[in-house]
Design a binder for these strands. Structure first.
Lengths: 167, 167
DNA sequence: GAAATTACGTCAGCCATGTTGACATATTTA
DNA sequence: TAAATATGTCAACATGGCTGACGTAATTTC
């Protein structure tokens, strides 16, 4: 079942939909971020730190796949403006564990709202269980070399109900 | 059926997958583009012009949703390096209709190859008809205000088998 | 205990690609 | 003839990537 490859037509349509969907997907947060003098890069940091409070700088770099210099710039701004703070690691005092302040968590939620609505709207189709399939499809669109890291993140993140510390 | 909204957990996982998937989705073309001294912006122009040869500059602007100054820069480079050429409109001589040269079409195909593989791989799941659902999901992730334009594009592009002109 | 490695920060400069605002030219429409 | 349209271009600026180099504190290794 289902190993008829997609037609060229259909495949190209999906490529283009990926472009349009992503463009609009990030447009809501972009508008909010502007009010704070932030950009997309700040959003990513807020999001992932909020999901995994106490993560190290290196862990964040691994997820974002950018250089520490790029991260440094936005991280500094988030800290200076009071949305993120750092704590010295207890077992390894070289580490600067990352946490959101209350304002940071509020902003993170505010940014996530429209995207959650968008996802829920998109997945709430008469066909029903679109969510499961969609998740699989997006997962398989990640490069094989990155899948373990992505799966680790998703698995680990799903365990992070309560903040570990840092208030 | 299926109007139970997605759990917060699942929704956030999809938001993150969208980020990871898009990041990797554009990574293959990025590598190729580097060899030509081009970037993502050039890719978009090559792609859409190749899909709709003879389109006007304004049509391209509407699809990309960028300013004409931004487009102007990359378009000029693509023309100077011989991947795109322009033809005066026949009915309206103010227009500069856009076409790919042979080199442009070759590069476009080369850039599209890895993305087609990626989509086909992602959609070829045991569940079978993921493609249809996936298309719907991505479509519904486009902002309502943009859906008509996106649908128009997809519909129109599906009719463009043969180039209209321009050799 | 000295040396190497690691985690992190920072300075400086470069590049790609988006933005706004202003202005010019040719052509079409009213 | 006047106004609107399609396109191009100049200048300045912002964001967020990048490389390369260097510094410091802490940990690990020999």
């Amino acid at each position: 079942m289902g190993d008829h490859p997609l037609s060229e037509q259909d495949t190209v349509a999906l490529i283009e939909l990926m472009f349009f969907a992503y463009r609009d997907f990030v447009s809501d947060p972009d508008g909010i971020l502007g009010q704070y003098g932030f950009g997309r890069a700040h959003h990513r940091v807020l999001h992932f730190v909020g999901r995994d409070p106490g993560m190290t700088v290196q862990q964040l770099l691994d997820i974002l796949q950018i250089t520490k210099q790029s991260l440094g710039r936005v991280l500094k701004e988030l800290i200076d403006k009071g949305y993120v703070f750092q704590k010295e690691g207890e077992t390894d005092r070289r580490q600067r564990l990352l946490y959101l302040t209350e304002a940071g968590e509020e902003l993170r939620q505010r940014l996530m709202g429209p995207q959650m609505n968008r996802i829920r709207r998109a997945v709430a189709l008469p066909e029903g269980s679109a969510a499961h399939l969609y998740r699989k499809v997006l997962y398989h669109m990640v490069s094989p070399a990155n899948r373990e890291a992505v799966r680790d993140w998703i698995d680990r993140a799903s365990l992070l109900g309560e903040p570990k510390d840092g208030g």
